[in-house]
């Protein structure tokens, strides 16, 4: 699809958890390429290992075999990576702005820009007047907005997202999806976005990779041919969108059944 050099290249990746005699394969034979500026989504049934895959890319976990390579922009001002988790993961003893400054100080972003970045991004997500608040004083949706800002403020070349909106209510999820697309449009980094929510993945991504129910290579790659900027709600009236959603839903149902079958055979 893309001749551009890859930003993130994964080959033959596998993760096996060894618990005494028990050997649990989280995933295997995973290969992918993510290009600069690409919004890549990975969907799969729960327990398919997609979160573990993302944690391997982030360097939180070590893959058992295979390689993960990043071809980073030399001399870029921002951090190599950032990640948004299912839970906001803000430090409860720091205010909103102190949480942002904390990760900025660890990043290569020049010190004299920190104040501006924090101010501008908080304003973008409508939380500027809450900058001196502590996480416990904010709602779940607001905290997740801060977590989103925390990821973007270090201007990462690769942004990893692990079902970041899964614990939000429906309204908040749409708000956050809009904000994510807005912030990404400004920075255009490579995003790897993991979700079990098919609609979300197709509405946000340039490409969607479907993870199998039982460990193995991706079972399908789907290109989302919708123009940007996108309206994640308006998109639902698009027949092409609906067709892809149904296709992926069927595929995942099939995968789920396959893993049930294999579970029986084992």
């Amino acid at each position: 699809m893309n001749d551009a050099p890859s930003r993130l290249t994964i080959r033959d990746l596998a993760k096996v958890f060894q618990d005494g005699e028990e050997r649990v394969v989280a995933f295997e034979d995973i290969a992918l390429e993510a290009h600069p500026g690409e919004f890549l989504c990975v969907v799969g049934p729960s327990g398919c290992g997609k979160t573990t895959l993302l944690r391997c890319i982030a360097g939180i976990e070590t893959p058992t075999t295979g390689s993960i390579q990043r071809q980073l922009e030399p001399g870029a001002a921002g951090a190599e990576q950032a990640m948004v988790f299912q839970q906001h993961g803000l430090f409860p003893w720091l205010t909103v702005e102190a949480n942002l400054h904390f990760v900025l100080r660890e990043s290569p972003v020049p010190r004299d820009q920190h104040d501006d970045i924090v101010q501008r991004l908080l304003d973008r997500v409508g939380l500027l007047r809450f900058r001196r608040f502590y996480p416990y004083q904010l709602s779940g949706g607001m905290n997740q907005r801060v977590a989103l800002v925390r990821a973007f403020c270090v201007q990462p070349q690769v942004l990893l997202m692990d079902e970041p909106f899964v614990f939000l209510d429906y309204q908040n999820r749409i708000v956050l999806q809009d904000l994510l697309l807005e912030l990404w449009t400004e920075q255009r980094q490579t995003i790897v976005f993991v979700s079990h929510n098919i609609n979300e993945a197709i509405a946000l991504g340039d490409r969607v990779l479907v993870m199998p129910g039982a460990p193995g290579p991706f079972v399908r790659e789907i290109t989302c041919p919708f123009e940007r900027p996108r309206d994640v709600v308006e998109l639902r009236t698009d027949p092409a969108y609906q067709r892809i959603v149904v296709e992926v839903t069927k595929l995942l149902r099939q995968e789920q059944e396959r893993s049930v079958q294999e579970g029986r055979a084992g």
């Binding site: 944690r55 982030a58 939180i60 990640m83 993961g89 990760v103 660890e106």
Partner: peptide, 28 residues
Amino acid sequence: PAIHFDVARVYRVRPWRKLTHIVLPAAF
């Protein structure tokens, strides 16, 4: 909470700062 250590890992927080700015306040 494990997520504090995950965040430290992802944002490449240096070990000493992790101790003084994450572990100590979290355990305070």
